[in-house]
Simulated scan of single mutants.
Amino acid sequence: MASPRLALNAITVTAPDPRALAEFYARLLSLPVTASEPPRPHEPSEAGWAQIRTADGLILGFEYERHWHRPVWPAEPDAPHATQHLDIQVDDLDAAADHAVAQGAALAEHQPQDDVRVLFDPVGHPFCLYR
Results as ranks from 00 to 15, higher is better:
P126T: 10
G57I: 09
A2I: 05
P44V: 14
I11M: 07
S45D: 15
L21I: 08
Q84K: 12
G104T: 07
Y64H: 10
L93W: 12
W73P: 00
W49M: 07
H85R: 15
P112W: 08
L93D: 11
Y64D: 00
Q51A: 06
P71E: 00
D91T: 15
P41V: 07
L119M: 08
Q111G: 08
H69N: 06
A50L: 06
S45G: 12
A35C: 01
R131N: 13
D92P: 01
G57N: 10
R40W: 08
A97V: 12
P74W: 13
H110I: 09
A26W: 05
R40H: 10
M1Q: 08
R19S: 09
R66T: 06
E65H: 15
W73C: 01
V101F: 02
H110Q: 11
G57D: 07
Y64K: 03
V118T: 14
W73Y: 13
P112Y: 12
P74C: 04
F62M: 11
L93G: 09
Q113G: 04
A10Y: 08
T54V: 12
T34D: 02
E65Y: 08
G57T: 11
E109A: 15
A108R: 15
A47T: 03
L129V: 03
D94K: 14
A15D: 03
P38N: 07
A108D: 14
I11T: 13
T14G: 05
A20R: 15
D92F: 11
T34K: 04
Y64N: 01
D114F: 02
A100Q: 06
E46G: 06
A10W: 09
A15I: 01
A108L: 13
Q113F: 13
L28V: 02
E109H: 15
P18N: 06
W68K: 10
A7L: 07
V33N: 06
F127A: 10
A96V: 03
R53G: 00
R53D: 01
V101D: 07
I88N: 12
D115V: 04
R5K: 15
P39F: 02
Q51N: 05
D114W: 02
E37C: 03
R70P: 14
